[in-house]
Design a protein around this nucleic acid. Structure first.
Length: 432
RNA sequence: GGAGAGGUGGCCGAGCGGUUUAAGGCGCACGCUUGGAAAGCGUGUGGAGUCGAAAGGCUCUCGCAGGUUCGAAUCCUGUCCUCUCCGCCA
């Protein structure tokens, strides 16, 4: 959610930047609701004060008939006003929540993901002297990916992942936890990128896989039942990313300044309905309804929010580089960064079978947009209260990174060489 | 799933229809005291909104949401959560 004061002061800017992100918002209508709400609130306060005065004036004695009558009138007025306020407040909040976060100045203006800007290319795609196979072909040939039986048992876009690929996933997980837990590495990345941050390791978290509606809404990430799975008999949604469960952790809390930044790396199974992607990426494990994900989440003071974002991107690059996978770094354009984002970076990793870079990572700088609705704040040393900044970023989304490793590290006879950094976590095994 | 108990300020804990503008204690901050500290004494001590240049005022906030009443932390209804016991279970 944006600060209403900011919208009051900059209605034109907000309308324009919202449009750049592809959101049509009626700022006039919002400001009108805002004004109505203010007036109603002020009237209500006056009447509440009158009621308090009346009660106090009777000093615990039984009030006179006249006072009772006055009180009854006041109560009726207050009840009516409260009812009205509730209605207008709901409208106001809905309208306010529909306004997207403002993109930072360096975010390119664009109408679709096609206008994302490649700002860096790392690594050389490998030359193959044999016919390159896709993750689907490699996995099915060795019976490590079985989507046919998964479809029979559950539905399309689910899979049984088996054998070496499972070992690979657990190796990646352990390696990431170890890497992000390494304070010296974090410090090195901070120094290399000239960031004003403290070196503090990431704490691993296994979060709940479901969130209730109110909480999920507060993250600004709940887009309805066409994208997220809702449990039929409970007020609960299956998370679409660990971030959605980690971000609201400090809902309505005030964190002491010296406790920040808080850096988490969460591991969770993510569920996505993928509505609107029918027929897209149906092959292999690139786009699944269910996949495991390692996700970084950072809570920080506002002045370090952007640097935390940069750190997360540096970590992402480090991780992909360590795996030796060629990638491109994209500065996402206004249309693609997402509603709560102020800025967004994608890493697209080289997928040899498709001869394309495909999205494997995202880093989202949210600034205070989530924190405002979640009421996650910090208390300064001097006692001041401010909203925190939140950042989230993919460490690895399993289906996609496993696909990338499979395809980039395949041999002519359908084996998969294991990247060096993962071998210690696979009992020294060199290939699958 | 069944039965019971309970959710009050940073924490503990009183209050169970009106002198509560939430007692008291702990903690914390500042001051006095001291060579310095402890103890002692004094003062202050959450959040949101709103008016104001500020000082400060006002409204809301006793899990949450409704209701009863001139008046609700207190009574009623619903709901969520926690704990205990039982049941089931990895």
């Amino acid at each position: 959610m944006l600060d209403i004061q900011f919208i009051r002061d900059n209605p034109k800017l907000v309308a324009e930047k919202s449009k750049q992100k592809g959101y049509k918002v009626d700022i006039e209508k919002l400001l009108d609701s805002d004004k109505q709400r203010q007036e109603l609130l002020s009237n209500l306060m006056d009447h509440q004060r009158a009621r308090n005065d009346l009660t106090k004036s009777s000093k615990g004695q039984r009030p006179s008939d006249d006072q009772i009558k006055k009180g009854q009138v006041l109560r009726e007025t207050i009840t009516k006003e409260e009812e009205k306020l509730r209605k207008i407040d709901q409208e106001f909040t809905t309208q306010l929540a529909s306004v997207p976060n403002m993109p930072l100045d360096d975010v390119p203006v664009g109408a679709s993901e096609a206008e994302n800007k490649v700002i860096k290319t790392w690594g050389e795609p490998r030359e193959f002297d044999f016919a390159v196979k896709s993750d689907a072909e490699l996995g099915e040939a060795r019976d490590m990916i079985d989507k046919t039986r998964a479809a029979k048992v559950s539905a399309a876009r689910f899979t049984y992942l088996k054998g070496g690929l499972v070992e690979l996933e657990f190796a990646i997980t352990q390696w990431v936890l170890k890497t992000l837990g390494d304070e010296r590495l974090i410090e090195r990345l901070i120094t290399q990128n000239n960031l004003s941050l403290v070196a503090k390791a990431f704490v691993p978290v296994l979060p709940p896989a479901v969130a209730n509606t109110a909480t999920y809404m507060a993250t600004g990430r709940l887009n309805g039942e066409d994208e997220t799975y809702k449990l039929a008999d409970d007020d609960l949604w299956l998370n679409a990313s660990a971030e959605h469960i980690l971000a609201p952790m400090y809902l309505e809390e005030i964190l002491p300044e010296d406790q920040l930044p808080i850096r988490y790396v969460g591991f969770t199974t993510a569920f996505r309905r993928e509505a609107g992607s029918y027929g897209k990426d149906t092959e292999g494990i690139f786009r699944m309804h269910q996949f495991d994900k390692l996700e970084m989440e950072v809570f920080s003071a506002p002045e370090t929010g952007l640097d935390e974002h940069r750190l997360l991107v540096a970590i992402q690059e480090h991780l992909v580089q360590q795996l030796g996978l060629p990638y491109q770094l994209l500065l996402k354009c206004t249309a693609d960064i997402g509603k709560p984002n102020a800025r967004g970076i994608d890493i697209n990793t080289w997928m040899p079978a498709q001869k394309q870079y495909r999205e494997t990572h995202t880093a989202d700088f949210i600034a205070d947009y989530q924190a405002r609705r979640m009421k996650t704040r910090l208390r300064r040393q001097d006692g001041g209260i401010e909203l925190v900044h939140t950042n989230d970023a993919t460490a690895f989304a399993m289906g996609r990174i496993i696909k990338a490793i499979m395809e980039n590290y395949q041999t002519h006879d359908g084996h998969i060489i294991i990247p060096d950094v993962l071998r210690p976590f696979m009992s020294g095994k060199t290939e699958i």
